[in-house]
Amino acid sequence: MKETGGRNSIFTFDRMVALTSILIALFLIHNEYNMPNPNIQQTIGPSFMPIAILVALIFSALLILFTSLRTERKTGDADAVLAEPSLQTSAEQYKIMGMVLLGLVLYAVMLVPVGFIISTSGLIVWQAQLFEKGKWIRNLAVGIPFSILIYYLFVHFLEVMLPGGILSF
């Protein structure tokens, strides 16, 4: 299911990952190295493990970099079949995924001040629109009772306090 057309982009991605992680790792090592260490006599202190991991991380990022510079070898594995990642994502697809994320961010922002029921109903309608245009009534007819039911179930039955917001009951 994979398209082979996106080869150039995957080179760039792997290289970018490798280079950024090397830079971040160097920064973190520097950061950790300059940390004051506690006055407890220990063979290895709290800095040892993070620095060891970061050094190994730089090493593995270099391996990725070399692999991507040399060649690209692709075989289908099970997870690839599952995710069906066609390597080229169209602008349309990025747009729809961006909208999903935007909906989720708005949901997170609104959750506490506005409350669970209204935010969740909103999220469901928003999300459903992205997957399937129209059907407003169906989405509202499912979204609102679903939100109320879940709120009630969690707050009164499972004793998980969800934010009530402006509609708490």
């Binding site: 949901y107 969740t120 469901i124 997957f131 679903f146 969690f154 969800l162």
Partner: peptide, 17 residues
């Protein structure tokens, strides 16, 4: 369409709580 938004809701509750 509805399923995925319900999944997102449950994920958020799971993480928030």
């Amino acid at each position: 369409a509805l399923l995925s938004s319900m999944v997102l809701t449950f994920c958020t509750i799971g993480v928030y709580s």
